[in-house]
């Protein structure tokens, strides 16, 4: 194409525009959409700024003892319920994969029941357990009144933890299934018993598959704990409600709780992002190194 003039008979004049400046296409639609959205945002912010919200009250209650203790209870419950959920998830995942049909179908039933009924209903069931079992314990050895045992904390812990266990069981099962059968045979031939194998080989490898979804579920759990306000567990939303029943600052206190949920979830999201990056990186590095080794050996 270098010697266009001599080989092609089309008039040279046609190509004389090649030196002209390129002008990018104008995205009028994008500009319009962005303007409309910004306008809407401005109106919303203006509405909130001029609305009947006493921002000083938000600031005042942001670090009020009732709110902070509620926040602590929310975090405590997230940790406890998640720990119980993970423990039950592992136990039921192992049961559902058991060759023993009784264990297997008990686990199937557990997952079916707790995934099939609303969490709020489960919380109410636990909290009102005293209506069907006035006392709990082993007759003659140890007994106590159900109402004393089933405090809002216990009812919430059981409700959230057992419900979470049903979901985590499926995640753990997927993780265990992702472990290659060859790894299990290799563990058997070096004389590992089933429990050692689970602890040393299967669960560590299943973690790669289990951790990302469990990270998501921790974040969901932070927000799920707010359901416990219904049965009187003193988490942040419940405490915010108690305050606004007294002072009538409903919106201000709801905003305070919303900001705290956002703070906690943002911190957890950053943690989850780092965790996933860590897994992705170690995986990628190994693969890159393997490719290099294979090439070196082939050469």
């Amino acid at each position: 194409m270098a010697n266009v003039d001599t080989t092609i008979s089309i008039p040279r004049a046609k190509y004389s525009i090649a030196h002209l400046h390129h002008q990018p296409r104008r995205h009028y639609g994008r500009w319009l959409a962005a303007s409309l959205i910004i306008l809407a945002l401005v109106l919303i912010v203006k509405a909130f700024a001029q609305g009947q919200i006493a921002w000083p009250v938000v600031a005042q209650f942001f670090t009020a003892p009732a709110i902070l203790s509620g926040l602590w209870n929310t975090i405590l419950m997230t940790i406890c319920a998640m720990a119980l959920g993970l423990f039950l998830g592992v136990v039921f995942a192992i049961m559902i994969m058991s060759p023993n049909p009784v264990l297997k179908y008990v686990a199937v039933f557990y997952i079916w029941f707790f995934r099939g009924t609303p969490l709020l209903l489960q919380l109410l069931l636990w909290f009102n357990l005293a209506l069907i079992f006035p006392t709990l314990g082993i007759p003659g050895v140890f007994e106590m009144r159900t109402v004393d045992l089933m405090t809002p904390f216990m009812a919430t812990l059981l409700g959230l933890g057992i419900n979470q266990g049903a979901y985590t069981a499926e995640v753990v099962r997927a993780g265990i299934l992702s472990v290659d059968n060859g790894q299990i045979e290799a563990a058997k031939v070096i004389g590992m018993t089933r429990l050692t194998m689970l602890r040393r080989i299967i669960l560590p490898q299943a973690m790669r598959v289990i951790i990302p979804p469990v990270g998501n579920e921790v974040i969901s759990m932070v927000k799920l704990t707010s359901v416990a306000s219904v049965i009187g567990y003193a988490e942040i939303l419940r405490n915010a409600q108690s305050v606004y029943y007294a002072n009538n600052r409903v919106m201000e206190l709801l905003i305070v709780s919303a900001i705290w949920y956002l703070v906690v979830v943002t911190i957890l999201s950053i943690g989850q992002h780092l965790l996933e990056k860590h897994y992705a990186k170690s995986q990628g590095r190994r693969e890159a190194k393997r490719a290099a080794t294979a090439q070196a050996e082939g050469a």
Binding site: D180, G182, Q183, E185, A187, V189, I190, G191, Q205
Partner: peptide
């Protein structure tokens, strides 16, 4: 059975080294 397996060592077609 685990104890008895110690008397023999096994090498697999697909190596099966512990990946982690």
């Amino acid at each position: 059975i685990a104890r008895q397996r110690l008397s023999s060592g096994m090498v697999f077609q697909r190596f099966n080294l512990f990946a982690h």
